[in-house]
Structures are given as structure tokens and as C-alpha cells.
């Protein structure tokens, strides 16, 4: 008769795994790494003069944020909640308004004839004392404006949500509504 092996006492196994569990709970954090992705412009070589902006005035959309976090959009005071609509109106310029950016009509392979404002620039200027959250709010609204335009465009052209398009088509839509948010070289506005 084979010798009977005594059963291993596994009751402490639960304790061990509890310990491991608690260790992981303590050392890890739930926060997901999400954020607002942006791209910085390449550095200006030191010997090169900062060239004065040779941008047609109608192609420029200026958003200024002062030290009290107030917005000045195209020379007008504005609430952050109106910024997105204003930016969308500017980027799309659907009615070919002479005060909004120049609209080009181009044939893009894969999309057909498209009207878009390819030379527009959104310029964000902030003060040294501007609060980070206020600056981020502005960036967020501008990105939201682009995202909404892309979504609407994709619905119109492909009858699909932008997120559901394949990569090539997303690239095409991005080309039409490419993010052109420029961040000015830091300046000190209004003294001190």
C-alpha cells in the first residue's frame, strides 16, 4: 500500500495572498495618466531674429489671458464658455466672411472638393501671472473646437463618427482641420 501523504495545511495561503494584495493596494495608484496633448514649436536658433508675423490680419485669432484670468478674444472681453463657438466660427468661416480667414477651395484626393481655411492661426498669449488652470481652460476649449469641427465634418462626409474612421481617413480630416494653435514667445505684458 502506498504511503499516504499528509495533506498540506493551506490555511495560511489566504493570509499570504492578503498580504500581497494589501502591498499592491498601498504601492499603486489608481490615477490614469491622461492629459491635454500638445506639440511645441521647434526652438528658434539664437542667431535668427524672431521674424515679425507676416500673417494676414484676418487669418489671425488672438486670445489673450491676463493676470486676473480674464480673456480678451479678438479685442473683446469674453467668457470662457463662448470661446469654443467663437473659435469654431473662425476656423470654419462657413459664410466666407471677409473678416474671417481666407477660405480655399481645394480638391483633396479621397475627399473631393473641400472648402477650408488653411492659413488661419490661433495665437494664445498669456501673462506671467496667469493661473495654469485658466490657461489650460483656453487650450481645452480650442482643442474642443477643432475636435467638434472634425466630428461634424466626418459626419457630413462619411456619415460616421470621427473616432470610428480608419487611420487614413482620420489623417484626411486632420488635414482639413489641422490644429494651428501658436503659442507666442513669452513676453511680459504690462510691466512688472
Amino acid at each position: 500500500m502506498a504511503k499516504k501523504v499528509p495533506q498540506i495545511n493551506a490555511s495560511s495561503m489566504a493570509d499570504i495572498s492578503f498580504l500581497l494584495l494589501i502591498f499592491f493596494l498601498v504601492t499603486t495608484s489608481m490615477d490614469v495618466n491622461s492629459g491635454l496633448s500638445r506639440r511645441l514649436p521647434a526652438p528658434v536658433p539664437p542667431d535668427q531674429k524672431v521674424d515679425d508675423m507676416k500673417i494676414n490680419k484676418r487669418n489671425l485669432f488672438i486670445v489673450k489671458i491676463n493676470s486676473a484670468n480674464q480673456l480678451l478674444v479678438q479685442g473683446q472681453e469674453m467668457d470662457i464658455r463662448q470661446l469654443k463657438e467663437k473659435a469654431k466660427e473662425f476656423i470654419a468661416n462657413e459664410n466666407d466672411d471677409p473678416y474671417l480667414p481666407v477660405v480655399f477651395t481645394e480638391v483633396i484626393p479621397g475627399l473631393g472638393e473641400v472648402r477650408y481655411t488653411k492659413d488661419h492661426v490661433i495665437s494664445v498669449q498669456n501673462d506671467v501671472d496667469t493661473q495654469y488652470q485658466a490657461y489650460l481652460n483656453v487650450q481645452n476649449e480650442l482643442v474642443a473646437a477643432y475636435n467638434e469641427l472634425r466630428e461634424e465634418f466626418s459626419q457630413r462626409k462619411f456619415h460616421k463618427s470621427y473616432a470610428d474612421l480608419d487611420e487614413d481617413r482620420q489623417k484626411l480630416v486632420q488635414k482639413v482641420y489641422s490644429q494651428r494653435i501658436s503659442e507666442a514667445e513669452p513676453k511680459n505684458y504690462g510691466g512688472n
Binding site: 491635454l36 514649436p41 521647434a42 498669456n126 506671467v128 493661473q131 488652470q133
Partner: peptide, 29 residues
């Protein structure tokens, strides 16, 4: 931090540009 003054952030951004680290992400919830 959300109450940081933009002066500091601008300095960081300039440093990142000089280091050619152009892809950035502003962490937020």
C-alpha cells in the same frame, strides 16, 4: 498644480523646446 503661475510653465516650455522635447502633455483630470 492648477494654481501655478504661467511664468513657471512658460520657462519649462522654453526649456523643453531647447531640449527638442516637443511632444508634451498637460496632465489633467
Amino acid at each position: 498644480d492648477k494654481d501655478t503661475r504661467m511664468g513657471v510653465i512658460s520657462d519649462i516650455k522654453q526649456a523643453l523646446r531647447r531640449a527638442y522635447a516637443l511632444r508634451i502633455s498637460y496632465s489633467a483630470t
